[in-house]
Amino acid sequence: MNLTLKIWRQKNATSKGRFVTYKVNDISTSSSFLEMMDVLNESLVMKGEDPVAFDHDCREGICGACSMYINGHPHGPDKAVTTCQLHMRKFSDGETIVIEPWRARPFPVLKDLIVDRSAFDKIIQAGGYISVNTGGIPDANAIPIPKVKADLSMDAAACIGCGACVAACKNASAMLFVSAKVSQFALLPQGRIEAAERVQAMVAEMDKQGFGNCTNTGACEAECPKEISISNIARMNREFLSAKVCAPKVKEMNEGGG
């Protein structure tokens, strides 16, 4: 198949970007979207031009590196896939495809389609963990966990941190990402222990990073490659409200508390 690509090109974080149009020919329908990009880049290199820079790594839909906003959808038109698992059979011959980077203030463009998503790491660092050190742990079966809860926790934990939720949200909100981590722990007895501190710290960091607010539009859920449910957002809201209302007043989380 032959395609026309309109791709956002931007030299670096400080320069102004623009759309550049490319043609690619003889693309197999069974190749993946990124393999199509490889073909384009190979031809650009041969012409001595700068290839299109994009994040990608595992190409199995699990590392969460790839991040292209394709024809108005993060990760393209197919449901429940990352860009690397999107296949060209989802497009038709002669189609024009517009490829943009994730757009959000906390995700500045570094080059072409590569954005800086370290804001997500910062949110996890604020509290996305259970504070246990290595070693000295009781037996894994010491705390039985209801299967239903463990499964729900796993549903939330399936998040790959790609940022499609932010990219899809009209408000560039990170609520789905944050709530997935909050939910994973909130559902487990191990995670309950510091649940109140966790949700407050992570939400505060999320706001600090400059993400938008959740208006319950549901675009995040619709575009999430791992189909994380917005019921997690409700759970986080619940956790947050009850933490704000009920948790006792404590001093700033100190060294030992984190």
């Binding site: 246990v132 742990i137 463990a150 499964d151 722990f185 191990q190 995670g191």
Partner: peptide, 21 residues
């Protein structure tokens, strides 16, 4: 010890209906 460690960290391993791994 690895399994103990991971469970303590909140890794949601698959469980039986009785709640055990």
């Amino acid at each position: 010890s690895i399994i103990d460690q991971c469970v303590a960290q909140g890794v949601p391993f698959a469980r039986e209906y009785g709640g055990l791994l």
